[in-house]
Amino acid sequence: MAAYRYCEAVTALQARNFSYGIRLLPEAKRLAMSALYALARRVDDIGDGELPAEQKAEALARTRALLDEVRTGAVGEDDTDPIKVALADAARRFPIPLGGFDELVDGVEMDLKGVEYATFEDLKVYCRCVAGSIGRLSLGVYGCEDWERGAEYADTLGLALQLTNILRDLREDALNGRTYLPTEDLVRFGCQQGFALPVLPAGADFTGLVAFEAERAQAAFEEGLRLLPMLDRRSRAATAAMAGIYHRLLGRIAADPQSVLRGRVSLPGWEKAYVALSGLAGGRS
Rank of each mutant, 00 (worst) to 15 (best):
A174E: 12
L277W: 14
V125Y: 12
I134R: 00
E213K: 15
E54Q: 05
L228A: 13
R62Q: 06
V43E: 03
R188W: 05
Y4S: 02
G21C: 10
M33W: 02
R136W: 01
L175F: 02
V199R: 15
D205L: 10
V265W: 11
E8Y: 05
G208K: 12
G263P: 06
L267Q: 10
R284A: 04
A214T: 07
D169N: 07
P182Y: 10
S278G: 14
P52Y: 05
S266G: 12
E215C: 08
A40D: 00
R92I: 05
D111T: 04
E213F: 03
G190K: 10
A281P: 07
I83L: 01
R168H: 07
Q162K: 11
L157T: 01
W270M: 11
A204T: 15
A57E: 10
T80K: 13
G132N: 12
A2F: 00
A217Y: 01
R41E: 02
L197K: 15
R64F: 00
K29A: 04
C127F: 05
F94P: 00
R30P: 06
G251H: 09
G140A: 08
A204G: 11
D89H: 04
M230Y: 00
F18I: 00
G203C: 11
A241V: 03
P52S: 07
E50W: 06
N17E: 10
G150W: 12
A35M: 01
A61E: 08
V275T: 14
C7K: 01
V130D: 02
R236T: 01
V115L: 10
I22Y: 00
L167D: 04
V70E: 04
E148S: 15
L261M: 15
A255C: 07
G177L: 11
V275D: 09
G177A: 08
Q193R: 14
Q218G: 12
Q192N: 12
I134M: 15
G244S: 04
A243G: 06
Y4W: 05
A214D: 06
R171Q: 13
C144R: 11
T11K: 07
A74G: 14
T119H: 09
R226C: 09
L39K: 00
Q192L: 14
A281C: 13
L261R: 15
L175I: 07
E77M: 04
Q162W: 11
L39I: 02
T179S: 15
R226D: 11
S266C: 09
Y37G: 03
K84L: 01
Y126V: 05
F120L: 13
E152V: 13
K29F: 01
K124H: 10
P95D: 10
G158S: 13
D122Q: 06
A38H: 02
D44G: 04
A273F: 06
L159Y: 13
G203S: 09
T164M: 08
R149F: 03
E223S: 14
A254P: 03
